[in-house]
């Protein structure tokens, strides 16, 4: 897919940054506002997809030297592994805990194991979606 679309490429450079920021925001906000691991992951993935469409595949590969299969596996591993966190403390599998911590600048902040679990979900989603798209697109 070698296209030479100047406008698309220029816009993409800016938009990808915005999308990435949005993805991170959605991921972190997910617990209290619309968002979460799935959406964050999907939006993140769509940023990559946009990059692949706009810029040459090889260039992106060099710029983002990540094996997305590993990302997917890592994500799935994290979300399964957090489940055992509860088990170790004698709680049911996948029991999530949360607490409130006073942090400078941020004030009272909630810390929760859900974030770790959701991070796993997000990573898995990103990894799988990008892997699928890349596999198909590269197989010409």
């Amino acid at each position: 897919m070698r296209t030479n679309n100047v406008i698309l490429r220029t816009v993409t450079r800016i938009v990808v940054i915005i999308i990435l920021t949005l993805a991170v925001y959605l991921f972190l906000a997910g617990h209290h506002a619309p968002g979460g691991g799935f959406i964050g992951g999907l939006v993140l993935a769509s940023a990559f997809v946009l990059l692949f469409i706009a810029v040459d595949m090889e260039t992106v590969r060099k710029a983002v030297p990540i094996d997305f299969k590993l990302v997917a596996a890592l994500g799935a591993f994290i979300s399964v592994a957090t489940g055992f966190g509860g088990v170790m403390f004698g709680e049911p599998f996948l029991n999530q805990v949360f607490g409130y911590v006073e942090l400078p600048f941020f004030g009272e902040t909630e810390l929760t194991t859900v974030t770790i679990f959701e991070a796993g979900v997000a990573l898995a989603v990103v990894g799988v979606v990008v892997t699928i798209i890349l596999s198909i697109a590269e197989d010409v």
Partner: peptide, 13 residues
């Protein structure tokens, strides 16, 4: 579950 987004707490907790 310490979350205000009910859908998200169902999913993650």
């Amino acid at each position: 579950a310490g979350g205000k987004n009910i859908v998200n707490t169902i999913l993650s907790d």
